[in-house]
Structures are given as structure tokens and as C-alpha cells.
């Protein structure tokens, strides 16, 4: 199980990040595939029919609609 790490003054954000780190046993991602979203449990995200295995690439796509500056995906 991987948990997202947060730095800076956002204690609440850290709390929030921990919330999705619940289990690796749930891999029924139908909802996420259909509606978009990121699964902290298995480090995968979906949006617009695309699948992402890096948070930075997913983030670049859903927030700015552009390729990841680091990986170009």
C-alpha cells in the first residue's frame, strides 16, 4: 500500500491523503474508470478514458489538460 505524502503547512491535507490509503484489497475501479479519479490504494488514476500510473501525469491531465512536464504523458 502506498500513501501519498504531503509537505508544507497543510496538516489537513495530510489527513485527507491518509483517508484514501485504506486497503489494497479493493480493486473494483468501475466507478473511477467511468467517472474519473485517483486510487491511492494502487496508485492509478483515470480520466476521459485514459489510464495513468503516475500521479504527476494524471494531475497534469485533469488540472491543466496538458502533458506531464516531467514525463510528457
Amino acid at each position: 500500500m502506498k500513501c501519498r505524502k504531503f509537505s508544507g503547512p497543510f496538516a489537513l491535507l495530510a489527513l485527507l491523503g491518509a483517508s484514501a490509503c485504506v486497503s489494497t484489497t479493493v480493486h473494483d475501479h468501475d466507478y473511477l474508470v467511468q467517472n474519473g479519479g485517483w486510487c491511492d490504494a494502487c496508485d492509478h488514476g483515470w480520466c476521459d478514458g485514459r489510464e495513468f500510473d503516475r500521479l504527476c501525469c494524471y494531475e497534469a491531465w485533469v488540472i491543466e489538460g496538458s502533458p506531464c512536464p516531467e514525463h510528457g504523458e
Binding site: 489537513l12 485527507l16 483517508s19 485504506v22 486497503s23 466507478y31 479519479g37
Partner: peptide, 24 residues
Amino acid sequence: EEAIEGLRQALVLRPDCWGAYRGL
């Protein structure tokens, strides 16, 4: 802040409680 705790607990009990996921 308390809402986060509640929704988090829902996801702990049921990781695919997508309503709580959206709630967050």
C-alpha cells in the same frame, strides 16, 4: 475538518464507498 474525519472513517469501513470519496 471534522467532515474529513467522518468521510475518512466511511472509506476505512468500505473502501469503495464512492459517495464518501466524492464527499471528500
